[in-house]
């Protein structure tokens, strides 16, 4: 195995034939199957796919939270798959900012303290750490919420604190796991826009996992993961079945529904029937490419 890898200096994340298998024998489940991927510095990538496709597992392996069964993860040219368990926390602290599906703020700490704690972990203490936390929260529109505890903040505000926390140590890479999943449409949109804006301004590399189709307007690249494998890169020729969220190639499916001047594409007649029967339910995931 390589400890470091001679790569283009511009590559932030380099995945080499990454696989993760849960269990063994006849109950083995291959969550991620032979995924190779480069993400360049400053790039924003979304990993999408149906539930259970391995998106979160892939994100956890990138973020040094889960060891791959095989394959290697290079972060800025350094193979983190070879590090000991004790070495991983420092890698996470120095390289990644995490944004989770739920904000996961520490309930006993104020917004400022939640951000400051990460700075403390990285060795920044005292007034400097506090000022940095307050500045970040101010930049994210939470200047008047500094002393509020998570229970006193709305879902959107909590997620913005989580973004500030992720940015606190100025990590080169942000990893986001469905950051808008628990927010209403408006708050989700706001958080996504903010994440995109901040990441671009600060030159961060972002890998986000999401079910939210609107994220493709924010990111540079959408990757589609299905059954643990990267299937196809997003293009004008593909779309998503709004019912099952499976990828559908427009010119290959016969299950198409035209309505109000728009077309929806389905992977099967069953999905098409479900959509027709409960159209309002799938309104939010309607896709028009």
């Amino acid at each position: 195995m390589n400890i470091t890898r001679e790569t283009n200096n511009n590559i932030a994340i380099d995945l080499q034939r990454l696989s993760k298998v849960y269990g063994s024998g006849h109950v083995a489940v291959k969550a991620v199957d032979d995924v190779s991927l480069h993400v360049t510095k400053g790039e924003m990538v979304a990993i999408m796919g149906p539930s259970g496709s391995g998106k979160t597992t892939l994100l956890q392996m990138i973020g040094a939270l889960l060891r791959p069964t095989s394959g290697e993860v290079f972060i800025d040219g350094k193979n983190i798959s070879l590090l000991s368990e004790n070495g991983l926390p420092r890698v996470r602290l120095q390289n990644f900012g995490f944004i989770f599906q739920t904000p996961n703020l520490l309930s006993s700490l104020t917004a400022t303290q939640n951000v400051e704690l990460v700075l403390n972990l990285a060795g920044k203490k005292g007034q400097g750490a506090r000022q940095r936390a307050e500045e970040l929260l101010g930049q994210l529109g939470l200047g008047d919420r500094l002393s509020h505890k998570p229970a006193q903040l709305s879902g959107g505000e909590q997620q913005r604190v989580a973004i500030a926390r992720a940015l606190a140590n100025n990590p080169p890479i942000l990893l986001a796991d469905e950051p808008t999943a628990n927010l209403d449409s408006q708050a989700g949109h706001g958080v996504m826009e903010l994440l995109g804006k901040v990441a671009r301004e600060m030159g961060k590399t972002v890998v986000t996992v999401s079910h939210d189709m609107r994220i493709r307007y924010v990111v540079d690249r959408v990757l589609w993961l299905e059954d643990g494998r990267l299937r196809i890169r997003w293009s004008e020729g593909v779309t998503i079945d709004p019912v099952c969220l499976m990828i559908v190639e427009k010119d290959k499916t016969t299950h198409v529904l035209e309505h109000d001047g728009e077309k929806d594409y389905f992977c099967s007649a069953e999905c098409k029937r479900e959509f027709e029967a409960h159209r309002s339910k799938y309104k939010d995931v309607h896709i028009s490419l």
Binding site: G63, L65, N86, P89, R90, V91, R92, L93, Q94, F96, F98, F100, N104, L106, S107, L117, V118, L121, A122, R165
Partner: peptide, 18 residues
């Protein structure tokens, strides 16, 4: 009760000693 929060702290990068 706070195991999830401690999980967050670990995920962020706190060593076990912390």
């Amino acid at each position: 009760e706070k195991s999830r929060e401690y999980g967050v702290v670990r995920a962020i990068g706190a060593p076990n000693f912390y």
